[in-house]
Amino acid sequence: MAAMTLLSTESLSRHFGGLRAVDDVAFTLTEGEVRAIIGPNGAGKTTLVSLICGRVMPSAGKIVFEGTDISALPAHRRVGLGIAYTFQITSIFANLSVYDNVALAVQTGMRRGGASLFFLNEATLIARVEEALEKVGLDDRRDMQAANLSYGHQRLLEVAMGLALRPKLLILDEPTQGLSDAEIAGFCDLTRAIAKDATVLLIEHNMDVVMDLAERITVMNNGAILSEGTPAEIRDDERVQRAYLGT
C-alpha cells in the first residue's frame, strides 16, 4: 500500500500507580482510514487515545503524528496540529448555547488560520458554525442552551464540536453510548461522511456499529494490543473470541 502513516506510537506506556493501563503499545494509523478500537471495560482504550490527544501524558514511549514527535506537546497544541477528541463522558459547555459551544471550536481553527481573536470575521464564524450544526442535524437548535438538549443531541453536539475543529484525526470515544437505534443509524451515516475528509479513530462497544463502519479493528486487553485486522479477521480470531466476544 502506498498509503501514508498518519500516526504511530512506539513502546507507549502509561501506568497509574502499579496499574499498567497502557503497556508498551505500538499502534499505527493510516491516513484516511476508519479504525475501531474494541476491548473489555478497563482494557485501556480511553487511556490510549488520551495519550494520543494529550489529555494524559505518557510514562514512557513516543507518539509520532505526521512525522513529528508530539509526545511532549501539551494537548492544546496537538489540537492545533489537527487531533480532535470527543469525550467518552459527555463534556460540553452546558450553560452556553449550542451556537457558542460550536463557535468555540470554530474559533480555534480560524485563529490557527492566522485570524486575530479581536477582529474575527463574524460572517465566516457564523457560516462555519452553521455548517457543522447542519452536518449533525442540530441546526434548528442553535439558540438552545446545551444543557436542555436531549442526551442523544448532546452527543451529537460533541461530534459537531469535533468536526468544527476540522481535524485530520477525529477520535470518538464511545459516541453511540446511550443513543437510540434510530440515532445510531444516523450516527453511522454521519461518520461515513466525516471519514471522507478525516481519519477516524472510534472506540465502540456496539459490535454492529464497529462491523459496519470500521475498515480495520484493533482489539485491546489489559493495556496491550491483543489483535488487529479487518472485521472479518477479527470475527474469526480465536483469542479475541476468548478474551472479548465471549462467543
Partner: peptide, 25 residues
C-alpha cells in the same frame, strides 16, 4: 462580547473542554 470573552467563559464553565478545543488555558 469578543471571541476572547467567549474563551474566558468557556474556561469558567469547563476548563478541560476548553483545553481540548485547542485553547492554551
Amino acid at each position: 462580547r469578543s471571541p476572547i470573552g467567549r474563551i474566558l467563559i468557556a474556561i469558567r464553565e469547563n476548563e478541560e473542554r476548553a483545553r481540548m478545543l485547542g485553547y492554551d488555558t
